[in-house]
Structure formats: C-alpha cells, structure tokens
C-alpha cells in the first residue's frame, strides 16, 4: 500500500545527512505509526524504481508529516543521491509504515545505543518514552559534534538522558559501563556497526540479559533474486509448463488449467503446497521451517521457484 507525498522542508543536519519533511498530497491522512517504524521510498533510477528504506524520525504524536533522515552514500544504488538532489515540492511515493524494531512493551528501562545514522529509529522512540515517563538512556557515538545528526535537538530536549561519544575526542562507548548496574527488566537496542554490536551482545549475555531483551535493527533483509524462467514437469498429467521469469508457478499452473489450491499468494499460508519429485527448489516463502526447506520435497507454488532449469512436480 502506497502513500503519495511531497517534500515540504529540507534541513542539513551534518555535511552528509539531510532531513526531509514529507506531507500528503492526495487529501488522505498519512498513516499513523509506532515508534521505530520505517517506510520504503520509491526512487526512480534510470528506467527502474528502487525501494530504499528510511526510518521515520518524527514523533508518532505528529500526524501531519513524516521526517526521514538520509545519509549521502557513494556506493549506494543512487537512492540517497537522488534524495539529496531533490528540492522542496518533489513528489514521492512511499509505503505505509512498517515496524521491525519496536519497543518492548514490558521493559522496565530501555537502553538505546546508536552509531552515526543509526540514531534515526530512536528519535520516535524517545519521544514516546519521555511522553509516557518510561525510563531510558540514549548512548550515541559519532565522529564529532558537527557530524552528529540531531545533536542540538537531543542536547536541548533530553540532556539528562543522552550521552554522546565523539571518536575525534577519543571518546568510545564501553558496553561494560553501559550494561552493568541496570535494573532487572532492562532492554537494550543496538543500531551500531557490526563489531561493536557483537561486543554488546557478548557482554550483555555474560551479565545475564535474556536474549529477548536484546534488540537489533534489521530491515531490508528480504531476499532479492534475479528471477529466471524454468520448466515444471508435471508427472501425473504428463505436461510441461514453462514458468516465465515474471510469473509464478501458481500463475503458470492456473493458466494451464491445472487445479491447484491457494490462499494468501505471498508464501505465508501453505495452501498452494506441491510435492516435488526431483529438482532443486529455491524456497522464497516464509512458511517452511529451515529443516523443512532442506528436505527439498515440497514447495509453495505462489512464490518459490526451481533453482535450475527444470523441476518435476507431483501433479
């Protein structure tokens, strides 16, 4: 589901980070969101549309607009460069908000750890936490104050709860100091580079934080694969069905009038399961367990494909 928006404000936060304020243009209210949510922004690159994911960094109390902070990167597919070149009035298509990094509702205290642009999901979280008087600490590492996005805002609004670490001044976060002597029921959130994240997780586990109290920002993890066409050999009806690269096996079977059940059509419910007699399966569903996937004997026709050119199906 998409929302049509336009940019109404652009602010330079650091030399490389700009924040964009987006508001609706079609008279429909922007969808409300929960702290930690992100949206996908459609970016035209040449003939194609890329989808880039950005965390919403405005407060959920504010329903008239969304803010997203965008770091300019050189090695990207061009999304951040496109946005950095955009002007006020630029129209964009964005998805409804999604949340894969939400606050734990039963935490007694929240410790939020940010590195660089990793600050973005925490802005909506601290707005929520402080409004509801829920204890939190924000530990924020950046190169320097001038490269620290939202520095003035955080210093002004949350001075007692935020600690900055500037590597230029040789200040570094110590997982030990941050994690020790915290009350029982504390949850930690990590949006930091890989090596520091590993240190935090190791230290947290050794202190005795349960796994469920450690949260990491992971998004955009969906598999992107170059889809190829393949042939489905149907063993019972002795038919060869060609599945074009932009079609699913389910669609090809339906077009050939082979009776097959289906329900969700997004690889989640299992209704369109078919037995596979031979051939390697590329599982793209979120239905089977990893053990079931390795068995390579059944697949969901609505989403999964043959790994190679042919597959034999019991239909």
């Amino acid at each position: 589901m998409m929302q049509a928006v336009k940019i109404i404000k652009i602010k330079n936060l650091t030399p490389k980070i700009k924040v964009f304020r987006l508001t609706e243009i079609d008279g429909k209210k922007l969808k409300a969101f929960s702290p930690g949510s992100h949206i996908a922004v459609e970016i035209p690159v040449g003939q194609k549309i890329h989808r880039n994911f950005y965390t919403l960094c405005s407060s959920q109390q504010q329903t008239e607009f969304y803010d997203i902070a965008v770091l300019l990167t050189n090695n990207s597919r061009g999304g951040s460069q496109y946005l950095h070149r955009s002007k006020i009035g630029t129209k964009l298509n964005i998805s409804y908000p999604k949340n894969s990094f939400s606050l734990a509702s039963f935490a007694q205290k929240h410790i939020l750890v940010a590195g660089g642009i990793g600050i973005t999901p925490y802005l909506s979280m601290i707005a929520y936490l402080s409004k509801n008087n829920i204890p939190f600490e924000l530990h924020y590492a950046a190169k320097s104050a001038s490269e620290c996005a939202f520095y003035d805002f955080l210093k002004c609004e949350y001075s007692s709860q935020v600690k900055f670490y500037f590597s230029e001044l040789e200040e570094y976060i110590s997982p030990e100091k941050v994690l020790e002597k915290q009350p029982l029921g504390t949850h930690i959130y990590l949006c930091i580079p890989h090596s520091l994240r590993k240190d935090f997780i190791t230290r947290a586990k050794s202190i005795g934080y349960p796994k469920s109290a450690i949260h990491q920002e992971i998004f955009g993890a969906k598999k992107v694969n170059q889809k190829r066409s393949f042939i489905a050999n149907l063993s019972k009806s002795k038919q060869k069905i060609t599945v074009a690269k932009d079609r699913t096996l389910l669609e090809a079977l339906e077009a050939a009038k082979i009776p097959i059940d289906y329900s969700c059509r997004i690889g989640g419910c299992g209704a369109c399961e078919v037995k596979v007699i031979a051939g390697d399966i590329e599982h793209l569903d979120s239905y089977y367990s990893s053990v079931e996937k390795t068995q390579q004997n059944k697949m969901l026709a609505c989403i999964s494909r043959a790994k190679n050119q042919q597959i034999i199906i019991d239909l």
Binding site: K31, K98, S289
Partner: peptide, 20 residues
C-alpha cells in the same frame, strides 16, 4: 502439524492497511 508456529509467523508479518 506445526500449524500454530506457521500461523504466528504469518500474523506477525501482517502490515498496516492489509487486513486478512
């Protein structure tokens, strides 16, 4: 049959604006 594990993982991924 593993129905509830699968149902749960499906439900957890339901998105805003897409009811089932």
């Amino acid at each position: 049959m593993g129905v509830f594990k699968k149902a749960k993982s499906f439900l957890r991924r339901i998105e805003i604006g897409k009811p089932w």
